[in-house]
Write a protein that binds this DNA or RNA. Structure first.
Lengths: 138, 138
DNA sequence: TTACATGCAAACTGTTTGCAAATAT
DNA sequence: ATATTTGCAAACAGTTTGCATGTAA
């Protein structure tokens, strides 16, 4: 077992998840490199392409378990597919309409001002911002 | 035919939509009072409760036609239901997690600052902001 | 009278689930 | 040894679509 996988196994164990072959493989794909935005379908295809044997149902279940464990965040999104983000810190997104892909915006860059009073008895859980970008038309 | 319905018929005609009985009924429910946030299911139930004869498929089709005509906006949203907003002007939303409902925030109240440079060749189509509120815990 | 809209049911897509076989501890 | 996880297929929810019937212009 590679060093990275040992680390990943530890991380899963800490999250209360048994480091099974499938979960290790998916976790390595997800968290091995930089921040990623995936759908269940796209991650499954990637796994299949890498000859890792994982069923689509397991990908769904795993993504939801990772989300419940706080390893992933679901991105608020209009449309038919659910996207998961490996960056769980407070940050926002560009959505490139042309390609249908998401790009992170660091929270340091962005500031929201002038929030009106919240309804009584409520507090902010989090703020989702999606800036939809289209191609500049000539 | 009531005055309001004549006005509604005109509005539909201007949008290139024939003012049929069903479309008039739905348009009146949607645009008759203040701003609203509906799902296909909720609007259909409302119509049924008001003894207006509309099929769920027609509600879906009508909502999509209204959206295409610019009479409605779809709200970016994580989850299984699609929400439509009768307020098509630039504005944002509170999402009350407790009740699953949306509340408008006027754009005048809110300001986004420090937007980093856009990827080249792109421009902002629009900005979706959802502020998720939870009940203050005691 | 002709093109468009509706309703129904069937199709479709993304997602979840029940259960038997496989695996981690 | 025991509880958990997996894969598959079937179930499911929300949404769209084909087609015969109804309706607006």
């Amino acid at each position: 077992m590679m060093l990275q996988e040992q680390h990943m196994a530890e991380r899963l164990r800490l999250a209360g998840l048994r480091p099974t072959r499938q979960r290790l493989a998916l976790a390595t794909m997800l968290f091995g490199a930089g921040d990623r935005h995936v759908s269940a379908e796209s991650l499954h295809q990637e796994a299949v392409a890498a000859r890792m044997d994982v069923s689509l149902a397991t990908v769904y279940n795993t993504l939801n378990q990772f989300k419940a464990a706080g390893l992933l965040r679901e991105v608020a999104f209009e449309g038919d597919r659910t996207f998961f983000d490996t960056n769980t810190s407070n940050h926002f997104h560009y959505f490139l309409e042309e390609t249908g892909s998401l790009v992170d915006i660091g929270i340091d860059d962005l500031e929201v001002k002038g929030l009106p009073d919240l309804p009584p008895g409520t507090e902010i859980d989090r703020i989702d911002i999606i800036i939809r970008l289209r191609k500049t038309r000539a």
